[in-house]
Design a binder for these strands. Structure first.
Lengths: 202, 202
DNA sequence: AAAGATACGGACCGCTGGTCCGTATCGCAA
DNA sequence: TTGCGATACGGACCAGCGGTCCGTATCTTT
């Protein structure tokens, strides 16, 4: 196995970089305002360290996202309903989308940085591949849903980071409003209309 | 009126730049590979000219998009059904989305460049504002559609340039497949399910 | 034809992501 | 504890980008 434990200072620096990047991205309006040199300086680390640890800018952002995403990932893979496995698809799909939306809202700076990396990057990230696959499989099990593959893409597109940031930042849409709107939209697709006011938890 | 006719050479250069940029974007995989200097050189023009005419990179791309988008814009504003005004909303909405999708597909390099400009740019462009407003108004007139504002955003999100490019480029989805998928998806939202095989024209 | 207005173009600048390698630190073995 | 190979550090350094500037060329008007 090529897995070897990292040196102590390396591990500490990695954490420091994550923390610094998180803070900087959260403070700035646009992710482009945060340079690699800024992050290195804020973390008290040399630029070389930063690039050796993560390869390049998008590597850093991806790693940071992955780290912050772990709780949700766990909740989905082995948590309890409605997010966890074993939940009936018509209930799990909205829960999943809601979780994604909440993440994108709460970490919009980070998500924005991730999706703004490269040209067609959002779809080359493993996150996306995973979530899309899961969502597709769930939709497959719901009668009345045609073309679950595209539908999964389209539903996820409704949670795009820049859309969320735009609605939250320019249009003053609140978190709960957004959640409700997405839930309604999803219900429309699934044929599960009617219900109201199911935005608790998180 | 502050509108003054431009000098002859200026007009010719403008056209030359548009042509050069179009070609270059179409040839390259990612829009980032095309530099301003490249465009200037291909157009047989100095870099200064380019920046004076369009302000900056995103200005160029926006202007180019606007130019290429004009036919559709006309068709929507004063064309004949199903795109033009006077068409009943349940028929016009899918037509509009189909037109947008076709444009994004046929000009994906350009659309990709546009959406990749800045951080939250896609939503600051006038295109988007216009199309969203129109779509919202149409949805408003369709009974059974809740929250037409968000729904309009979500539907447009399904036509995002990078998603289209990804599906077309990596997943080998054809133009007609995509059109059908989007039409189905739209029908689901509108409550107009059932029909099949309505991908002609364009 | 001549002058004023307008546009040209490429040298130039600041800054960014990314590289490189001499030096410091770590972990292990004796 | 000491010593030594392996690993990681850090900041000077580089190439390339978007964008600016201003002396010069071209147009337009009378």
């Amino acid at each position: 196995m090529p897995e070897r434990k990292p040196r102590k200072d390396a591990a500490r620096n990695r954490a420091a970089v994550f923390a610094a990047a998180d803070t900087l991205f959260a403070q700035c309006q646009s992710p482009e305002e945060v340079t690699m040199a800024d992050i290195a300086a804020a973390a008290g680390v040399g630029k070389g360290t930063l690039f050796r640890a993560f390869g390049d800018r998008s590597g850093l952002i991806r790693a940071l996202c992955e780290a912050r995403l772990e709780p949700i990932r766990n909740a989905v893979e082995e948590g309890s309903p409605p997010l966890g496995p074993g939940t009936p698809p018509p209930e799990r799909v909205p829960a999943l989308l809601d979780a994604v939306l909440c993440f994108k809202f709460d970490h919009r700076h980070l998500a924005l940085a991730l999706e703004g990396t490269g040209a067609d990057s959002p779809y080359r990230a493993e996150h996306y591949e995973r979530w899309h696959a899961l969502l597709r499989d769930l939709l497959e099990q719901i009668p009345g849903v045609t073309d679950s593959d595209f539908t999964a893409h389209a539903l996820l597109a409704a949670t795009r980071a820049d859309l969320v940031a735009y609605l939250a930042g320019e249009k003053d849409v609140t978190r709960e409003q957004l959640r409700l709107q997405l839930a309604d939209f999803t219900a429309g697709i699934l044929g599960t209309r009617a219900r109201r006011g199911s935005a608790a938890e998180h």
